[in-house]
Design a protein around this nucleic acid. Structure first.
Lengths: 351, 351
DNA sequence: GCAGCATGAGACAACGTTGTCAGACGCGGC
DNA sequence: GCCGCGTCTGACAACGTTGTCTCATGCTGC
């Protein structure tokens, strides 16, 4: 029996073997595998039994060739120092790919780079990815979006500046989260609060600043623009900004950095100036990266449900590719996700 | 012209289009693309020109189907908290895949899990991966190796317990690195040194302990076994071990944790006991993860060239798959890599 | 009892590549 | 000048799946 030969030779069973085993035609097996209609329930069961018996798995290459599809989606991300974000991202994207039987191919980008367009172009051509997931800040790069739309590749962005710019996008209400974070700091009695902005290319930076100023306004605290420093989401930019703030004549009693990486920098600056945290200065970050809970004192921060966001974005992307658009796309999985305030010991009542 | 039609429809040019454009047969184009012999140089150039003109890229699915190869390799890794290791790993593996035109498919594993064998089995069957890269500790799980050898999938392990157990393996001389780390601590005047072991399933744990005892021996310091605590490479296990050490009647003046994650735990314990680092107690870690430089004081640790190791392992794996074994495999890329001591401010002279 | 129609099933040709084999061509030796 | 041999090139059949089209079957309504 040919089937046994194949098993013995450790070759995969083909659809041909299954058809022979079940006593039907190849096409009928194909119909069962792809859940197509027009197969009697009895036939369906018979075929399924044969599939199990032979441990049949469809050959991805053949399927892709015939269907003119690759069943591949790409994840293009910034290969930054801070990787815990990417880890969570990866978990989500991978999860969605697995449930929909898609493969995920990765393209890390080292920014800034002049060759981004070219790199992405060749990535798409080579992998034949049907769609791509673009986490911030890649989704905000006009040249990237241009290449992808030129190649007719659907895009799902995560935390983009302009949600409308892509086919699909998910994001958090980071303004609201920063608002709540600021209110937490205000409630501790701080009124003289330093704020370190993020990289201007990220949507997050503007959102977070807006939430901060909104909170001050709501609580009738005048905004001292000189307490708002530029930062670029990097450790060193946070450290430098903190030095500028803490060396002022009247330094702030609390500093909100708009990501954990910069909050680390603030902590280093405080330590270098022999200031005690949180006694002399309270510090808060944003992102709840792996470092946040490892620092001493552990960092007050904001957690975004990155994994869930990535999974939702990817699922919607794949659904779009498959072509089964649900009635109201926004209804089944909204693009807006909630953030969670994580209060730890780096923020304390003003002394 | 059919080519123009295709370009207009944004379809990829096929080998057929190239053949027509160059005025040769399909097979000749195939020969040029795959650098096969028996094509006159003039013909070769003509074909290459057509390939460039049409931006031809071979179709991976068709190629795989015909060649009965998938050009895919798998990376099976532990989806642990500590992700900076995985980040470096990924960079290396991805780099090697890119240079050899292989695709990388990921399979994160949440350990411990009873379904590991099944998960890996279905991963291989589904992806048709030709080979897999197994970083520690996955490469040390007998059930994993059994499944893979049963499926006839070549394996490259990174930092395995027994280098001989896999077809290809790369590792560091972690004993030597720990030896040098310990000598650094000894040179600072510490003689009463606490040591926190790693998870017994990792090769690294044994190596690192061996290096430590070796250093004590070489420097004629008696080994106080009670100063050696069990740990499991996790933050909390490091914290608990540190508490046990620091609450002793005569606590150690320095603690070597066998990874950074546990060193974080030690720092937390020290802080909770109001001890000053490094004045009251010096602390060292291992791995130079992203956290290490963010802590205060920055952590003395050991850096392994993970990216280079991963790249080498993957390259050798792919070379094996392609079948062009270099004369002496060990000669071109050795399995042993050097570690680098990274001295920061968490270790200081005994006070 | 038969047209008409829905439903279930199969034959066959793609899909874009590579492997196999056969043939065309050129060139040197006799 | 012809044979033989090596070098280059091409026709054709895989590879395992899906799409299209056709056909067989059974059921409905008159």
């Amino acid at each position: 029996m040919r089937t046994d030969e194949r098993a013995a030779a450790k070759l995969r069973a083909t659809i041909f073997d299954v058809a022979r085993h079940a006593g039907v035609s190849i096409k009928t097996v194909s119909r069962v595998v792809n859940n197509e209609p027009n197969v009697r329930e009895a036939t369906r069961d018979k075929v399924r039994a044969s599939i199990d018996a032979l441990h049949y798995r469809p050959n991805a290459a053949a399927r892709g060739l015939s269907a003119k599809r690759s069943f591949v989606i790409g994840l293009i991300y910034e290969n930054s120092e801070e990787f815990s974000y990417t880890k969570d991202l990866l978990s989500g994207v991978l999860g969605a790919c697995e449930t929909h039987n898609y493969s995920l191919l990765l393209r890390p980008l080292t920014l800034p780079s002049a060759e981004v367009s070219h790199s992405i172009h060749s990535f798409i051509r080579l992998t034949a990815a049907e769609g791509v997931v673009l986490p911030a800040p890649i989704g905000d790069m006009p040249e990237v979006m241009q290449v992808l739309s030129g190649l007719d590749v659907p895009v799902a962005t995560i935390s983009p500046k302009h949600p409308r710019s892509a086919d699909i996008s998910v994001y958090c209400d980071e303004a609201d989260a920063t608002f709540r974070l600021t209110e937490h700091v205000l409630a501790l009695g701080h009124t003289h609060i330093g704020f370190i902005k993020g990289h201007p290319d990220h949507r997050a930076s503007h959102e977070r600043l807006a939430g901060f100023t909104q909170a001050l306004q709501t609580n009738k605290i005048g905004l001292d623009a000189s307490l708002t420093e530029d930062g670029f989401f990097t450790f060193e930019s946070g450290r430098q900004a903190a030095f500028r703030l803490l060396r002022r004549e009247r330094p702030p009693t609390a500093i909100i950095a708009t990501n954990d990486e910069m909050a680390c920098g603030v902590m280093h600056a405080a330590h270098e100036l022999d200031l005690h945290i949180p006694h002399d200065v309270s510090i808060a970050g944003f992102d709840d990266t792996a470092v946040a809970s490892r620092l001493w004192p552990p960092l007050t921060t904001v957690r975004q449900p990155i994994t869930e966001m990535a999974e939702a974005a990817t699922s919607r992307l794949i659904q779009r590719l498959i072509g089964d658009e649900p009635g109201a796309p926004e209804a089944c999985s909204p693009g807006l996700f909630p953030c969670q305030l994580v209060i730890r010991r780096s923020t304390a009542a003003r002394s």
